[in-house]
């Protein structure tokens, strides 16, 4: 009964067929089976946000989702949104603002930030802080991250003077 289950999904635009044990969570599936190690594991109980990825367009905690639940789903990771260029401007703003230090939270942080920018074109600082409130960063103190996201939002809105 605990046998592996066949799943078929789309990861970063590529078709993936896999046999996974039910207990394998999505974060471990991405990291260990697909070797997409940009998705990080920080707490494994859904608090730190380092494992944030997109499933069917929505951000989720990949440690709180089983790989078997992604059958027929579309999964996007930091590698995918980097290679597609989707967040190139956001990454550039992070670079200019030094909005990362050790970088361990950064993939999850970028996924959460992009999620906000897609939903809300010109968030204020409080909204940015609120949207990131489930993503832990021990290094930066968050201000540089908020700055970088704010800069990106303004640039995207074409209001940067």
């Amino acid at each position: 009964m605990t046998a592996a289950v066949e799943i078929s999904l789309n990861v970063n635009g590529e078709r993936v067929e896999a046999n996974v044990l039910p207990r394998l969570n999505l974060a471990d599936f991405l990291r260990e089976h697909l070797e997409l190690t940009g998705t990080h594991v920080g707490c494994e109980h859904g608090v730190c946000g380092a494992c944030t990825v997109r499933v069917n367009g929505d951000i989720v905690r990949s440690c709180l989702m089983l790989a078997v639940q992604t059958h027929n789903a579309t999964v996007e990771t930091i590698e995918g949104v980097s290679d597609s260029g989707e967040i190139a401007d956001l990454q550039s703003a992070f670079r200019e603002r030094n909005a990362l230090q050790c970088g361990f939270c950064t993939p999850g942080m970028l996924m959460a930030a992009q999620d906000l920018l897609k939903q809300s074109p010109c968030p204020d600082r409080e909204q940015i802080r609120e949207h990131l409130s489930g993503n832990y960063c021990r290094c930066t103190g968050y201000q540089a991250i908020v700055d970088a996201i704010e800069t990106t939002a303004r640039a995207r809105a074409g209001r940067l003077t």
Binding site: L36, G38, E79, D83, R95, L100, C102, G103, F104, L110
Partner: peptide, 17 residues
Amino acid sequence: PRPNLDRLMQGRGLYVS
């Protein structure tokens, strides 16, 4: 800007884990 940031931002870092 720090020269090593792109690697970390694109999920191409190499942590021990």
